[in-house]
Design a protein around this nucleic acid. Structure first.
Lengths: 207, 207
DNA sequence: GAACGAATCACTGTTTCGGGTGATGCATAC
DNA sequence: GTATGCATCACCCGAAACAGTGATTCGTTC
């Protein structure tokens, strides 16, 4: 018998998973929470084998909550849950000790399979998730490269649509210098042009 | 008695809404679909008072489906449904005849209230949605930057770091054509270069 | 069948970007 | 006291982006 707890800020998702699992003989629903705080509150006096955890929640998000939970209760397996295939956050959650990740458009069978897999100590990914994860491997070994203050400043101005000469004028530098910072940004973040740079920056919340 | 149909590609959402509504005496669940085609198929021989419709689905999305449905069956009220607060698409769906919009983190009470409201011919918005809509007013007066399929395709490839010639080769077009789409993107979204374009696209979840 | 938008292609400029290469001054770190 | 990293500036050059203008085809709508 596997005891399952869910934390998600979407009531319909909680209801949906609950409904999917209610006829499973070897899965027991032990509780639910709509935010990180109430989840942590539950585990003060209770426990569960597997926690289904939404990645994006108001306040503390799944990535943080995952770290806190695994630190306090290393024996509990955490299964990430998200509506979209957000490779970066999936990666971070895995680094924080999650045992797998499923999408909200997973079938009933897939959800149950995932719960069984992680409760046995295995790692489980939805098929699609695995593919996306691969795309983010370049950052798995190292952390995201650290930008210098100047680089961040230039990055933000690029993101606001300014050209090198405009940025140079704005922060009283030579256009050559701005261009140097720009090239360093491309090199550090391993992207080949402005489009990729800005996409990465926004997605990683660098700006 | 209000008959309700739901179309959403996430099984757990369908389950969740179903579960929320099953004890409501004046709401009847008449069916469900996981994509636009099967939704349209249902309405050939059946009907409903209110259709809960996800905004983002594979194939034809909610915005298009909404237009088709309202054109064929003007008497059916459509209630948009999405996990996120996507102002641009909410606006477009409203223009296509939707009667309201709720977020997937709405409470049971809010969902039921919304269904009653739209079935009476009223307009209903989740509180948060209304606020975000206001932020998009700049687009409401002028043209709506709703992108064509081709433009979306080009936008995504730009965001992946491909240049015009590379995109042209990838989707079998002349580089001139790709450049045209690119210029249209800049014009439609009122941005002045690639950096701003990608930033807007990522932040607005256009990609 | 006129009007419209989407999609396609074309040419000409100018500006900006991006790759390469290299230099200097100035901290701090070891 | 030298190694390292940051910040600054400089030049060349080809590729790409951006601006402007204009055209054709096709399907849909009215």
């Amino acid at each position: 018998m596997i005891s399952v707890f869910i934390v998600d800020d979407h009531p319909v998702v909680i209801e949906g998973i609950h409904s999917l699992l209610q006829n499973e003989k070897d899965i027991a629903w032990v509780g639910q929470a709509m935010n990180a705080q109430s989840c942590l509150g539950f585990f003060v006096n209770n426990t569960a084998d597997v926690v289904l955890m939404d990645i994006s929640m108001p306040g503390m998000d799944g990535v943080e909550l995952c770290a806190v939970m695994k630190e306090k209760y290393p024996g509990i397996f955490i299964l990430g849950l998200s509506a979209f295939n957000q490779g970066l956050y999936i990666k971070k959650m895995m680094e924080n000790g999650a045992s797998g990740y499923i999408l909200k458009n997973s079938s009933k069978e897939e959800v149950i399979k995932a719960i069984h897999a992680v409760s046995d100590g295995n790692i489980f990914f939805s098929g699609e998730v695995g593919q996306v994860l691969a795309a983010y491997q370049k950052y798995s070994a190292t952390e995201l490269p650290l930008l210098t203050p100047r680089e961040k400043e230039v990055l933000e101005l690029i993101a606001e649509g300014y050209t090198n000469p405009q940025i140079a004028e704005k922060i009283f530098l030579s256009p050559f210098t701005v261009d140097s910072h720009r090239k360093n940004l491309l090199a550090k973040l391993q992207v080949k042009n402005t489009a990729s740079l800005i996409r990465l920056a926004v997605e990683q919340k660098l700006i």
